[in-house]
Amino acid sequence: MVPLSWYLVLAFMLIGLGGYGMMVKRNLIRILIGAEIMGNGVNIAIIAMSLYSPVFTFTGQGLIILVISVAAAHTALAMVLMLVYNRRYDTVDLGHPVVKEES
């Protein structure tokens, strides 16, 4: 059986990669992808803990089912926020927002 620490290392590497994307990238869609990668890492960590711990028999799986449902909702919300940002600043560049001149 694969040790728990292997799963946790994978989860932490995904969290680190997603954090790197969120810190460094300028494109809003890349930042959203980074956030989703971080979420996947957290999901792996929780499921692994639930498998290896007797305390969380179904807690891990049930929690992840709820988390995945909410992830879909927050991605839709993030997409709407990106659309609003694009309308207001005329770009999806988080680094250099320029206020659109009113005609």
Binding site: N27, L28, I29, L32, I33, E36, N40, N43, I65, I68, S69, A71, A72, T75, A76, M79, M82, L83, N86, D90, T91, V92, D93
Partner: peptide, 24 residues
């Protein structure tokens, strides 16, 4: 559920966002 929501739903949402925002 991961395949249904993440692979199916969220990826489609991200591609929609790319198509709706040509500047991306």
């Amino acid at each position: 559920m991961q395949i249904a929501v993440y692979t199916g739903g969220i990826t489609a949402l991200i591609i929609f966002a790319v198509l709706l925002l040509p500047r991306a």
